[in-house]
């Protein structure tokens, strides 16, 4: 028993190292100071209780992964500033809104939240071709 346990554990440790270093397939755009600030605001305001990024998060509002491309900056700013019937106005200041936009634009550039039908393989898995940078 002990031997199998140890083999599995070592495999886990190795896999973890591989995921940390190569899991992104070498595609990355480093965060700027503003992106980092936006990410902090995203967490402090708990936007994730209602919104998803890559389908992960709450369900009350829309997935915002590619909202920057789809809706555009002005529409996003309006929601963040005033809220809507469903989205609460969170009293964000101008700097916070700028940071959030920078963060969401950065997320948008990492890929698409919705996997397109061409990327679905007959075996059921995906082969996602990188779209952007």
């Amino acid at each position: 028993m002990r031997t199998v346990w140890i083999i599995l554990f070592v495999a886990f440790a190795g896999y973890t190292a591989l995921v940390y270093t190569n899991g992104d397939a070498g595609r990355m755009e480093p965060a700027t100071a503003q992106v980092r600030a936006g990410m902090d605001t995203w967490q402090q305001q708990n936007c994730a209780s209602c919104h998803q990024l890559y389908g992960l998060g709450g369900y009350m509002g829309p997935d915002l992964t590619n909202e920057y491309q789809r809706a555009g900056e002005e529409r996003m700013r309006a929601f963040m500033r005033y809220g809507s019937g469903r989205m609460p106005a969170l009293e964000l200041n101008d700097a916070e809104i700028d940071d959030l936009i920078a963060f969401l634009a950065w997320v948008d550039r990492t890929g698409s939240s919705q996997v397109s039908p061409e990327n679905v393989h007959w075996s059921g898995t995906y082969f996602i071709k990188p779209t952007t940078p």
Binding site: Y15, A25, G111, Q114, T125
Partner: peptide, 28 residues
């Protein structure tokens, strides 16, 4: 039990199938 343990270690990738990570994360 070992089957369950392998699941604990390697099965988390289903949370992020749609994220454009390296393909092997999905396949594993």
């Amino acid at each position: 039990w070992f089957l369950g343990l392998s699941n604990l270690m390697f099965n988390w990738g289903h949370h992020i199938y749609n994220v454009p990570t390296a393909g092997w994360i999905r396949h594993v």
